[in-house]
Design a protein around this nucleic acid. Structure first.
Lengths: 345, 345
DNA sequence: AAGCATATTGCAAGGGCTTCCATTTCTTGC
DNA sequence: GCAAGAAATGGAAGCCCTTGCAATATGCTT
């Protein structure tokens, strides 16, 4: 690493001038500035990052995993939007036993990020401690959240309307004549799962006039994966469900598999609705009817808010809820000829 | 930011001791060290990164995009392997009009990465200038490459055996009775595409005894996307192909779509084989027969080599070629009753 | 052409950090 | 209990960087 004295000698200016150039201070002529920069290059000395105006700064993007294709989809949309604003995105993916959200945040902080976008992070987990975010906010670091909500955090949230999504799904199924509709959903400690439960319960009670208790019995919890969806769906099918609404497309894939393993066809015997509408879903067998999360709009809004916050424009710290959209494909159909099954519960 | 003097006062030690602790120098007792660290915390001063032994360092992971699910798959495998070795992965995704590989590399360098893994980067593009990599290597930065090859770079390469993959695919189709087999492949400037071409030509000439010129006529180029695959496949179907081998699963999806748009069923009328075997492919309609790239093995090997290089263990700088595997599913079938079509060319 | 205002520059002072070295403290063997 | 060696520590010198200030250069006005 070169010293100021070396650079000053090479550029034939004083150390003071070099110092001023390196720190972007005013009071240096263009000529002097450029001879300092030339001297830096001659000495093979890397210019400090702030001298290169290329990037408006680093922005961290924290996502929980990449296996569910909705996360690469969010990542791509958000990275594009960040790049368009000259930010340099840094994608951080957690993995089981790997690096935690907190460790990533710390590393991002070390590298002087201008802001962080959390997608389905710990803010979506009601059992997690949200103090970590308060600490970030009190330091003045701009942060925004996608899909999840935590009370009392002075930052903007961008979420899909999970309750509405369930309403759309259930209404569609009811219209097709279904009345034995189940929900295969992730653990309720996660905000989006909890909200989908609520929406689902409300829809069953509203559209089908079920009691809260009965509606409740049509919910099965499972992990956020194909296997989790299959396990939850099996429980619902055993109970005689003719349609299964799922918390994610991946879980819906599991539900389709479970239905087939039980000897049923989709959609002839069992209708399945997913959630997310990740890119490849349309090519599935059968093409999945699903509730589309407006990924582009959400990502763009989150980036816009973060950019404003970084520029010092105050961003109203409330939750922006995006309306989902039902995408009709081939995994839902009219209720099959009713099969009378004795069911307890 | 606290000064040494402040910290020294808080910890009741000399500035010299604080300096030694902060720089990890020897000659400080455990007691003194911990009282300095406590003082840091009391003063709310962030410990410099090197004091936290949590991470063995940053490692850059550069992938071209996230839309083709093979890239998230590689990213996940490589990040897991890095995390297990206590490295902190930094995922960099390029995007059209967004941030280029070079810009990411520069940013990574600024932040002192210990090494970089390039997946399907510019090293796979024969028309790109590979001087950039030589510069990195001459600086002593450990780098490794996945899927692609460039002559004269003193670094290890980890690739799937593209030629072999085409051999597997063509042999399978020939066994099913196909003789009008087309290849829908990406631009030949990319090494994996060029190699698949070679493998495909060799297989057609070997298994079917075609002339080089004839075999050549069964190749259609298209972009690496569903649309690109569809466009290339349309050309092949027009020429009377009963089977289409594709350069990626995404292109295969396009081929299936093109076949259906032309009124053909898969696999009854047209057989389609993909490449990659990305996670969701098994759920597609029809479940895609594909040549599996050994993603886990390749990712693990690349990380192991990089870790060795970072530890100063010299890594033999040659190309490690991984054998792919044919995964039989439902998109290939026996050749349909031969339809005689007049074809020119 | 002289005078004035402003911008640029280097000197030198000052502060922060590192490191050499002498001193103190601790450990260990007798 | 004592001495010898090793480890730990602080003082102070020295290096590097920043910055106030004065000197100089430049350009504009009268």
């Amino acid at each position: 690493m070169a010293t100021l004295a070396q650079i000053a000698a090479e550029a034939s200016v004083s150390e003071a001038t070099v110092s001023r150039v390196l720190n972007g201070k005013p009071g240096v002529s263009d000529g002097a500035r450029s001879s300092v920069l030339t001297a830096l290059d001659v000495l093979g000395y890397e210019r400090p990052a702030r001298l290169r105006q290329r990037s408006a700064g680093l922005v961290g993007l924290v996502v929980p995993e990449l296996e569910n294709p909705i996360f690469p989809a969010f990542a791509q949309v958000i990275e594009d939007a960040l790049a368009r604003r000259r930010f340099t995105p840094v994608l951080c993916t957690q993995s089981p036993g790997g690096i935690s959200e907190d460790e990533y945040v710390e590393s991002l902080l070390d590298h002087g990020v201008a802001g962080i976008i959390f997608v389905s992070g710990k803010h979506a987990d009601t059992r997690a401690d949200h103090e970590r975010y308060r600490t970030l906010l009190s330091r003045g670091l701009p942060i925004v959240f996608v899909n999840g909500y935590a009370e009392g955090l002075d930052a903007p949230f961008f979420s899909a309307d999970d309750r509405d999504a369930m309403d759309l799904a259930v209404s569609h199924l009811v219209q097709l004549g279904h009345s034995r509709i189940g929900l295969a959903i992730g653990p309720k400690r996660f905000v989006p799962s909890a909200r989908k439960r609520e929406g689902f319960l409300g829809a069953l009670m509203g559209s089908l006039g079920q009691s809260a208790k009965e509606a409740q019995s049509w919910i099965q919890e499972g992990l956020f994966s194909v296997e989790g969806g299959a396990a939850a769906a099996r429980g619902l099918l055993d109970r005689g469900a003719t349609a299964v609404v799922c918390g994610s497309d991946l879980m819906a894939l599991g539900a389709v598999r479970a239905a087939r393993e039980a000897g049923g066809a989709v959609p002839a015997d069992v209708s399945v609705i997913g959630f997310d509408d990740s890119p490849l879903i349309q090519f599935l067998d059968p093409p999945l009817t699903t509730v589309r999360q407006p990924v582009s709009a959400m990502g763009a809004a989150a980036v816009a808010a973060l950019a404003d916050a970084i520029d010092g424009v105050p961003v109203p710290a409330h939750e922006y809820v995006f309306k989902p959209e039902l995408v009709l494909r081939g995994s839902t159909g009219p209720v099959p000829v009713p099969v009378t099954v004795a069911v307890t519960g």
